[in-house]
Amino acid sequence: MRLNSVVPDFSGPSTKGPIDFYNWLGDSWCVLFAHPADFTPVCTTELGKMAVLVDEFTKRNTKVLGLSCDKLESHVNWINDIKSYCVDIEGEFPFPIISDSSRELAIKLDMLAEEDKNNPDTAMTIRSLYIIGPDKKVKLMMVYPTSTGRNIQEVLRCIDSLQLCDKKKIVATPVNWVPGEKVMILPSVDDKDLNALFPNGHEKCSMPSSINYLRMTSDY
């Protein structure tokens, strides 16, 4: 899997019934993420936080889909522990978790560590996360080791950036950007077009190099 790769269609059993990925996704964005194993401490916190914030993903037209190599029965039983630990989860667990006990999807979606590629029958998935667009292409990838839990707020921030830049293709978001802050105007945009493209204002930063490349706007 690489940036802009088309995610292959797949199917599998999940905690919310069989998933046929393309049909399930429809015209939505998707966060597809793997965790190493059920009934483990870091994974419990990750899936719990994802569930607590699921409405934030829904606001962004983004569906959430978990995956690991555990059996479906294990997923179902583990959800009770997640809900017990994360008391802010209301009602049913809000997103499906796929069971990939054959490791077929883990191999197809490149979710195994290097040392496990030759031992797929016993391998656990790593903390791979793909943000996938409605065109079924990978827009962003995150890969974490088993020791490090992911920041779900950062996943949301990345979705905000990706969706903005998909809609307005002449801007990019700077370091630590959050919605409402200034964005960068791409160097490919000619200065003479700035007023027409950003009628509500823009600004330039003078640099020692005298190269005119740092331009910002809040007009998006």
Rank of each mutant, 00 (worst) to 15 (best):
M1D: 03
M1F: 05
R2P: 00
R2M: 08
N4H: 14
V6S: 08
P8M: 10
P13K: 13
P13I: 08
P13A: 15
S14L: 04
S14K: 01
T15Y: 03
K16Q: 13
Y22T: 08
Y22L: 06
G26E: 07
G26A: 12
G26T: 08
D27C: 04
V31I: 14
F33G: 11
A34V: 04
V42D: 11
C43H: 00
G48D: 12
G48L: 06
K49P: 00
M50V: 15
V52T: 14
D55T: 06
T58A: 11
N61D: 11
N61M: 06
T62E: 02
K63G: 03
L67E: 03
S68A: 05
C69W: 00
E73N: 07
S74W: 00
S74L: 03
N80E: 07
D81R: 11
I82V: 15
Y85D: 08
C86D: 07
C86F: 04
V87I: 13
V87D: 12
D88A: 12
I89N: 13
E92Y: 00
I97M: 04
I98F: 01
S99Y: 01
E104N: 13
A106K: 05
I107R: 06
I107N: 02
L112E: 12
E114L: 07
N118Y: 04
N118C: 12
N119Y: 12
N119K: 15
A123S: 09
M124V: 12
I126E: 10
Y130G: 09
I131H: 03
I132M: 02
G133I: 13
G133T: 13
K136M: 13
V138N: 10
K139S: 12
M141C: 14
Y144W: 07
T146I: 12
G149M: 12
R150V: 14
I152Q: 05
I152C: 10
I152R: 06
E154R: 03
E154L: 05
E154C: 09
R157W: 02
R157E: 08
C158R: 12
C158P: 00
I159S: 03
S161K: 11
C165T: 15
K167F: 02
I170C: 13
P174C: 04
V175N: 05
N176Y: 06
V178G: 04
P179Y: 10
I185C: 09
P187T: 14
V189Y: 00
V189S: 05
V189F: 02
D191M: 01
D191Y: 02
K192S: 15
K192L: 08
D193P: 07
L197D: 04
L197N: 06
L197R: 13
N200M: 04
H202Y: 15
H202C: 14
H202K: 08
E203H: 03
K204E: 08
K204F: 07
C205G: 01
M207K: 14
Y213Q: 08
Y213S: 01
M216R: 14
D219C: 15
Y220Q: 02
